[in-house]
Design a binder for these strands. Structure first.
Length: 280
DNA sequence: AATGGCGCCTGAACGC
DNA sequence: TGCGTTCAGGCGCCAT
């Protein structure tokens, strides 16, 4: 479920309450995507730093008090998968059937609820060493990184031979847009999702990048999209799905031209688009 | 090197 | 009511 906006909303809603908290106990339920990678007790006594985000991953530094960790402290790399959500509360509630990770601290409890268990919580001795570094290494640039210029985005598009929708989903050109926001950005940019990347000129590339940035920024402001499971760390749902123009709207009239929105399948994922507003 | 497909899981919605 | 099928926000890994 969660794409970059949901992960960022999660980060912001968790960060304040958890920073500086000392770990008192750790619980794991059913297996997640990967094993934690360290004994649960190894985390007890550590102190949480500021939660960070890279793509759709979250990084929670957990330092050992009194030990100089230098520039790259150890921590937990977390991912929400398709159905995950993090919560934080001063008082830990009774664990639900899908709560597969709980971190008890002296400031409250952080827990991951994830029915499908595609999510992950993995210990890494640093963000810049394996396994965290290995998982983060494949990620493309952040959407709001000033180094990601329209010219560079266009140049990256020229290298690829896939349809543009799949390139956006791959996260190699720019991270953060999943199925909802890739569809929305392509609609707002007026680009047919089947267009081969290399066929997109510099102006349209610049427009697409701008719309990706707009959609992600607006979704963050709206608290993300809640289709089913997602909520922030305090339990609040997102609202961006209400302003989605094409995603999940097959058969409904396009908000611009009235043409029925169509659904097609690309790389085994649904793509929603307006056949009139979006051109190759 | 790049690309397409698979599989990991559960739950909800749908058709018969 | 019940059962089988399809689909769902992601992504690492494998074979080609």
């Amino acid at each position: 479920m969660p794409e970059l906006p949901e992960v960022e909303v999660t980060r912001r809603s968790v960060a304040g309450g958890l920073q500086g908290a000392r770990v008192q106990a750790v619980e794991m339920g059913l297996p997640l995507r990967w094993p934690l990678g360290c004994p649960l007790d190894d985390l007890v006594g550590r102190v949480a730093g500021a939660m960070a985000r890279r793509g759709k991953y979250l990084w929670l530094p957990l330092v050992v008090p009194g030990v100089a960790e230098g520039e790259d402290p150890p921590g937990l790399l977390m991912h929400l998968g398709m159905s995950g959500a993090l919560s934080f509360a001063p008082q830990a509630p009774a664990p639900g059937p899908w709560d597969h990770f709980r971190l008890h601290t002296d400031q409250g409890c952080l827990w991951l609820t994830d029915p499908r268990r595609f999510g992950a919580v993995v210990y890494s001795a640093g963000r810049q060493v394996a396994p965290a570094a290995t998982l983060l290494a494949r990620l493309g640039p952040e959407p709001f990184d000033p180094a990601l210029t329209p010219a560079r985005f266009h140049a990256a598009l020229q290298q690829r031979r896939t349809p543009v929708k799949q390139a956006l989903l791959s996260g190699e050109l720019v991270v953060g847009a999943g199925n909802i926001y890739a569809c929305e950005a392509l609609f707002l940019a007026g680009i047919d999702p089947r267009t081969p990347c290399a066929q997109i000129g510099p102006q349209r590339a610049a427009r697409l990048l701008a719309r990706v940035q707009d959609v992600l920024a607006q979704a963050i402001t709206a608290g993300g999209s809640t289709l089913k499971d997602f909520h922030d760390a305090n339990g609040a749902a997102g609202h961006y799905q209400e302003s989605a123009r094409v995603y999940g709207r097959e058969g409904e009239p396009c908000s611009v031209c009235g043409t029925p929105i169509r659904r097609l399948v690309q790389a085994q994922r649904s793509t929603y688009h307006c056949p009139k507003c979006q051109r190759r």
